[in-house]
């Protein structure tokens, strides 16, 4: 197996006095697609936010390419090559498409490069470059959000519930893009509730229940375990 690029080491985190993650350890290796699966309220999004730096941890460690980044802010982590696309709101609704892309330049890429990549991959965005992002359809907004991942050449891509509220056809085309991004050597962590959409492209998968990782393995190994996890049969400690 390759070297780890992004790690959670025995992380406890939560909101206020409520602990949500009870000691989570998770490793994304260089160049792999890891799917983080599990039912609602299991702590998947919290794990992702901990990785992105939006949620402070109570104990444990977050490492990027082997170095501790626990105390590094989310903006610094983004400039270090962590590209996070949060659930359902990956765009600035009151900025135009072009201005949204301009915000991606903090990672070091130039605006013209980002625009070239985005409009070549999604011609519809090119037609709407001066439209407010909030007035576009959900699918187009996700395209805009994905453009950031495509154009800024990140080290790790973190995706939260890409399928949320979108038509199945659009979801599968978005995941094709994720697969393409992964082929260029980018490590990807995908958080999903609907496992089937993502198992096809994942190299490994992890199941999360009640704030703990209960299983890590190859996608086909986990496929049957998943249904029982969702129905609350096994996995409960």
């Amino acid at each position: 197996m390759n070297e780890p690029i992004l790690e959670l080491v025995d992380v406890r985190a939560g909101y206020g006095s409520i602990e949500v993650l009870h000691g989570v350890s998770l490793t994304v290796h260089r160049g792999e697609v890891l799917a983080l699966l599990g039912p609602n309220g299991g702590g998947k999004s919290t794990s992702l936010n901990v990785l992105a730096g939006l949620v402070n941890i109570m104990s444990g460690e977050v490492r990027l390419t082997g170095r501790t980044v626990t105390d590094v802010g989310p903006d610094k982590r983004a400039r270090l090559g962590l590209c996070t696309i949060p659930e359902g709101k990956g765009v600035f609704p009151n900025l135009t498409v072009r201005e949204n892309l301009m915000m991606a330049t903090y990672t070091g890429a130039t605006l013209s490069d980002i625009e070239d990549v985005a409009y070549a991959r999604f011609p519809r965005l090119g037609d709407r470059r001066s439209q407010l992002a909030g007035t576009m359809s959900g699918g187009e907004q996700q395209m805009l959000a994905m453009s950031r991942a495509l154009a800024t050449n990140p080290a790790v891509l973190l995706l939260d519930e890409l399928s949320m509220g979108l038509a199945p056809l659009i979801v599968s085309s978005l995941y094709e893009i994720v697969a393409q991004v992964a082929e260029t050597g980018v490590s990807v962590l995908v958080v999903e509730q609907f496992a089937r959409t993502v198992l096809g492209i994942a190299d490994r998968a992890a199941i999360m229940l009640s704030g703990r990782i209960t299983r890590v393995g190859a996608p086909d190994e986990l496929a049957e375990e998943l249904s029982s996890a969702y129905l609350g049969g096994k996995g409960q400690p």
């Binding site: 992105a52 939006l54 949060p86 009151n94 903090y106 990672t107 950031r148």
Partner: peptide, 21 residues
């Protein structure tokens, strides 16, 4: 970019940070 960032701050502060701003 500074001006657009100022407007982006109102829209979604945490997303701006995820962008590296």
């Amino acid at each position: 970019r500074l001006g657009v960032t100022m407007r982006a701050t109102v829209d979604d502060r945490s997303l701006l940070m995820l962008n590296g701003g």
